[in-house]
Write a protein that binds this DNA or RNA. Structure first.
Length: 803
RNA sequence: GCCGAUGUGGCGGAAUUGGCAGACGCCCACGACUCAAAAUCGUGUACCGUAAUGGUGUGUGGGUUCGACUCCCACCAUCGGCACCA
């Protein structure tokens, strides 16, 4: 028997697959289709680490299994290649980001190929390829055309000393990552996408899809639908009203002051009448340094300033109440103003305690001296005039109707979800295909002129005005207006990385189409994606953005269904062997190249699947890798115990059928670890038996093939089985062969197991009682006691309760 | 802080979803083979007992149940996301 040499046989089989293309998907086939998708990677300069192959192997297992089950499988791969790290790397090393990107992609592709994934490489996509981003730009134009893209003032993180806008990640505790200086928030006019217009559908349509529950919950909570009312508070002695959104109109009588966001326009409007405007300005400056995250922290000490000189009137009781500004109210949520009800809102309560503002109890049930009473399900309304005595829920309804009748407010559904800030002041992204003309305003670039190419330039350093680097390239910026032909300027902001990844799965269906983003037939054939797996870190943003774009494309008739993904699952992270997140700075990164070189791709794949619960994060262990290599060595040696004969070995038949069932089910339900454990157990049984027949081995090889495709193909060929393993059919099990006739039934006395007895599956209770009493280990626990109760669960347990 | 999740031997994990806790693998120990080592094969391996079909044991504290890793309540710890990292 020759030795198991993974490096040789893996190269051999990868060459054969390259040549024969068995994993190429067909756009017209009689077979049922199966579209399996994994999140395409960001091709970083560091290359792959062992975390990447985990989800890829998982869906590769599913894809390979489905092919053997007779499906036409689409399992594609591509590159999410625009983004900040590449741009920063390019600036630092003075290499063009396009060159860096190409280099990184080549490395990633070679690494992935060395692991033997069954991707259809003929459909590879790259978001930075003009033939790809042409269609990203096209989608943006459609959004613009339908009024879903608009300009709006939004704050960015601004480093005054570097004079650049920073990503949130580059802001470390309020300071610039590069120079350490203090970061402030600077308002810029940016392109926004109206995702909020789709908020209801993004929640409601979750009913149409099969996502793991925690993903649905995260999506729903992120969108954050809440029902309540807008209420207008008159500003005393003025025309203006101050509008608030509240989910608790039932507590309106308890509102003793108002709080507005530091950026609220009311302040500018009344600046001449505000007595302490300097104090207010000082506070605004402080707030501009904080992130929303810091501002809304519940546990932090409340801060704020009363606006002196203007007051509001509580519309329920006509009382004059003060207006404050505080950082815990955000301009981006609700209306940027709140009615404070300190008796029944935790943050308002803390604020009121600190600044000595009156706290009125309007819902009885708690102790508002100690803390805010926030329950809406229980309690009784008090101190509230005409709604006294109601329960808060009815009072809420009553108040909304009352407000509407009196013209003081109206029912409204509010969302936490905010519109999508779509502008970036960066070079390495898709140019936004719009032109600004003084006469015509914002004019779309005609479709025939797409793509708007990124200009090839030397310098992509940010400008010191906060504009995109593209703003410096005057001969690119200066153009003519497509509408009037007059002089005009191109938009210099680029799109965020999210843009390209919001529709890439559509391009896979028809990646070389130069007339459309993908043909209608291809989209109708492949969509929806049958199974999409990705990290939990993408459950809110990427998933939501791509669902939003898909729904938009559905509305304009481009895609055939309202949801892109029929099923979504999630994997856990692979940590370093010190149990920390793998990162260069922590020095715990494991490169899959090393594992492939030292142990082989099949060992890497088997370990990635065997390492632990697929959905949980787990530390890497080199010893675990060795264990999987040993397993494959033992698989290889099965060739030594092969004997002549037809069919399954009689004594092994039951186990083989059980294993087929177990593996078939586990590979579909993310339980790859126990599927492999079942194969290990079967292997141990083979070895205990001492000999196997060809049919036994054949079935074993097919079951193991999705996990370890190279070694199984090699053994298949070397024992003279016909054709290629990847053309074989997935085995079926026989339910009759799985049943056990005799089982070991555990016998409990008072819930403690005191012995087991052998019984046939359909043994009646009387017989079991008799047999149990005969067993000395059991009967000694029954002696001198009364049997109070007996519980018999056939096939599971027999419990005798004594006193 | 808010939203979501997780917690079981020395380690990764398993448990038919309320019915024998610890499958499978790693580590470790001992034995076989070897001049020796590695590799391989075999045996053992939750903890406390010399031992027992003894006792204890699934983050902590309480509860429901004939029976709880599994259900309920309270708490603690860790991880993911928080809108310009991807």
């Amino acid at each position: 028997m020759r030795e198991y040499r993974p490096n040789e046989i893996e190269k051999k089989w990868q060459a054969i697959w390259e040549e024969r293309e068995p994993f190429k998907a067909s756009n017209n086939s009689d077979k049922p289709k199966f579209y399996a998708l994994v999140e395409f990677p960001y091709p970083s300069a560091e290359g792959l680490h062992v975390g990447h192959p985990r989800p890829y192997t998982a869906l590769d297992v599913v894809a390979r299994k489905r092919r053997m089950e007779g499906y036409n499988v689409l399992f594609p791969m591509g590159w999410d290649a625009f983004g900040l790290p590449t741009e920063n790397f390019a600036i630092k090393n003075k290499i063009h980001p396009a060159i860096v990107t190409k280099r990184n992609i080549d490395r990633f592709r070679a690494q992935l190929k060395s692991i033997g994934f069954s991707f259809d490489w003929s459909r590879e996509v790259d978001t930075t390829d003009p033939n790809y981003y042409k269609w990203t730009q096209w989608i943006f134009l459609k959004l613009f055309e339908k009024g879903l893209a608009y300009k709006h003032e939004m704050p960015i993180n601004w480093c005054p000393s570097c004079k650049v806008g920073l990503a949130n990640e580059e802001v470390i505790q309020g300071n610039c990552e590069r120079c350490g200086g203090e970061v402030v928030r600077k308002v810029k006019n940016q392109w926004m996408l109206k995702i909020t217009e789709y908020a209801d559908r993004l929640i409601d349509d979750l009913e149409l899809v099969d996502y793991i529950e925690r993903v649905k919950i995260q999506q729903t909570n992120w969108i954050g639908r809440s029902e309540g009312a807008d209420i207008d508070f008159q500003i005393a002695g003025k025309e203006d009203k101050l509008r608030v959104f509240t989910t608790r109109p039932d507590t309106l009588f308890g509102s003793t002051y108002m709080v507005i966001a530091a950026e609220h326009p009311l302040i500018e409007k009344y600046k001449d009448e505000i007595e302490n405007i300097d104090e207010i300005r000082e506070y605004q400056k402080e707030v501009s340094k904080k992130s929303d995250f810091e501002r809304t922290e519940l546990s932090k000490e409340k801060t704020g300033v009363e606006i002196k000189g203007i007051k509001a009137i509580n519309p329920a009781n006509g009382r004059e109440i003060p207006i404050w500004i505080s950082d815990y109210v955000l301009m981006t949520y609700g209306t940027g103003a709140i009615m404070a009800v300190p008796g029944h809102d935790t943050r308002d309560w803390e604020f009121a305690k600190k600044f000595n503002l009156p706290i009125i109890e309007v819902i009885k049930g708690g102790d508002i001296e100690k803390e805010a009473y926030t329950d809406i399900e229980e309690g009784v309304v008090v101190n509230s005039d005409f709604i006294n005595g109601m329960n808060p829920k009815d009072a809420k309804e009553y108040m909304i109707n009352w407000l509407e009748e009196k013209g003081l407010g109206q029912r409204r559904v509010n969302f936490k979800l905010r519109d999508w800030v779509f502008s970036r002041q960066r070079y390495w992204g898709e140019p936004i295909p719009l032109v600004h003309c003084d006469k015509c305003g914002w004019v779309p670039v005609p479709e025939s002129e797409l793509p708007v190419l990124l200009p090839d330039v030397e310098n992509y350093e940010p400008t010191d005005t906060g504009e995109s680097p593209l703003a410096n390239i005057r001969d690119w910026v200066e153009t003519t207006c497509p509408k009037c032909g007059g002089p005009a300027e191109r938009e210099t902001d680029t799109m965020p990385q999210w843009a390209g990844s919001s529709w890439y799965f559509l391009r896979y269906c028809d990646p070389h189409n130069d007339k459309e983003l993908a043909s209608k037939e291809a989209l109708e054939y492949w969509l929806p994606i049958d199974w999409y797996n990705g990290g939990m870190e993408h459950t809110t943003l990427h998933l939501l953005y791509s669902r939003f774009w898909h729904k938009f494309l559905y509305d304009i008739g481009v895609v055939p269904g309202p949801e892109p993904y029929a099923k979504r699952t999630s994997h856990g992270m692979i940590l370093g062997d010190n149990n920390e997140k793998m990162s260069k700075s922590r020095g715990n990164v494991v490169n899959p190249d090393d594992i492939v070189r030292d142990y082989g791709a099949d060992t890497l794949r088997a370990y990635e699947m065997f390492i632990g619960d697929f959905e949980k994060s787990v530390p890497w262990s080199e010893n675990g890798v060795k264990g999987c290599r040993r397993f494959l060595e033992r698989v290889w040696k099965l060739q030594d115990i092969l004997v002549e004969g037809e069919g399954y070995t009689k004594e092994l038949e039951g186990s083989i059928h059980k294993t087929i069932k177990k593996v078939s089910e586990d590979f579909e339900t993310l339980k790859f670890n126990t599927g492999i454990a079942a194969l290990m157990s079967l292997l141990n049984e083979f070895n205990d038996h001492g000999s196997i027949k060809k049919e036994d081995l054949k079935t074993f090889l097919i079951l193991l093939n999705p996990v370890a495709p190279h070694i199984t193909e090699e053994i298949w060929q070397s024992i003279g089985l016909e054709g290629y393993l990847h053309e074989a059919s997935w085995p079926k099990y026989d339910e009759e062969k799985i049943k056990d006739d005799v089982i070991e039934l555990p016998i409990q006395v008072n819930g403690k197991v005191r012995g087991t007895i052998k019984v046939s599956v359909d043994e009646p209770q009387d017989k079991i009682r008799e047999k149990a009493k005969e067993d000395p280990n059991i009967s000694k626990h029954l002696e001198g006691k009364n049997i109070v109760k007996e519980i018999f669960v056939p096939g599971k347990i027999y419990n005798i309760v004594v006193k």
